[in-house]
Design a binder for these strands. Structure first.
Lengths: 195, 195
DNA sequence: GTCTATAGGTGGATAGAC
DNA sequence: GTCTATCCACCTATAGAC
């Protein structure tokens, strides 16, 4: 995915480090120097693998999106009902937060106005895919009388994404995962038939 | 509020410009040079009014918080019921979004890890005050049977703040205020007795 | 693939004239 | 209060040796 002739493992380690920096500090608040220091290589070496920071950023979103898509596919395969699917969807966010990180795409959404065009395009794909997956879960859940909500499923899907991203943002500012839990609990309770 | 001997009007114009830049680009993505260019003064002149960027940032939060507090007090004075108070609270966010901006404190929450300590402290005060106000509206609304929600009011208050901040984040990425409207509508519907 | 060295630009901040 | 001039650290990115 980076330069075709590059060592895959090195490229992966660069992405891992850049991902952590992006999710904790933001795209505009980390540099090639930060990655280089963490991996004990020079900045010039990083540019061999990812020519520009914009290119690196684009790869980060693509990889994050793919990883998320795989997690969603796993939830689809191994969950029995819609309520469990939603619970596990929320747990994806929780896992990121427990690692001291913000959702990569939520972070980039805040910095949206300053991002290169290629990153803006990739970013929207992530949210579109999340929305698409949630709409299906919500509609099937309502049909099976496992979930309860009024109006179009898309409206509730957008509410879910917004709430979870916002809850991560706030929980990180208070360094308090319990804040996220409380919000997620209220959200799930409002959607569950026997609330 | 800046340097005591500084011209108040000039300081206010600096704050206005910095506020707009912060709300559109983020704290780490604007500079004294940006403000200087917009106001047609030099960077050195800005440093006379606000010695450091951290100091400027702190003043920005304090002013934003005061402005928000006044708006909430106005809602308290001139609203008849809890549902209307919530609607007008949401409209505060909507007004910011319509101006092409993110909530100043939501933006800073994303950049939290990189902020100077003085700004971190002020930031939490903003969210605490919002939470305090919402809890009172929610509890009175439930007692008057105007609002319906389960569990502690604080949980729903945190859900409201998180959802609205998250919805702004997403709506800005899509440059689509309607996305915010849809989320807000779903949120209000879930809390209203006759949904 | 990784290094040294460096270019060319911008960041926040200060000294001192006016 | 605002200016010119400047400092030094940092930024992204490249050239060319090894």
């Amino acid at each position: 995915m980076p330069r075709p002739s590059a060592n895959a493992d090195t490229s992966r380690r660069i992405l891992d480090t850049a991902e952590r920096l992006l999710q904790t500090r933001g795209y505009n608040a980390f540099s090639y120097a930060d990655i280089a220091q963490s991996l004990r290589v020079t900045k010039a070496s990083l540019h061999y693998h990812f020519r520009t920071k914009a290119e690196l950023g684009q790869h980060l979103i693509e990889r994050y999106q793919q990883s998320f898509a795989e997690a969603l596919a796993d939830i689809d395969r191994t969950s029995s009902d819609s309520r469990q699917r939603l619970r596990r969807y929320i747990d994806l966010y929780l896992g990121v937060l427990r690692d001291g990180r913000m959702c990569l795409c939520g972070m980039l959404a805040a910095e949206y106005a300053t991002l290169p065009k290629s990153m803006k395009t990739e970013l929207k794909k992530f949210f579109d895919e999340n929305e698409r997956w949630l709409i299906e879960v919500l509609e099937k859940g309502r049909a099976a009388r496992e979930l309860r909500f009024s109006g179009p499923a898309r409206e509730t899907a957008m509410l879910l994404i917004s709430s979870l991203e916002g809850a991560m943002l706030l929980a990180r500012s208070y360094d308090d995962v319990a804040r996220f839990d409380a919000t997620a609990h209220g959200l799930l309770a409002a959607l569950t038939v026997d609330s």
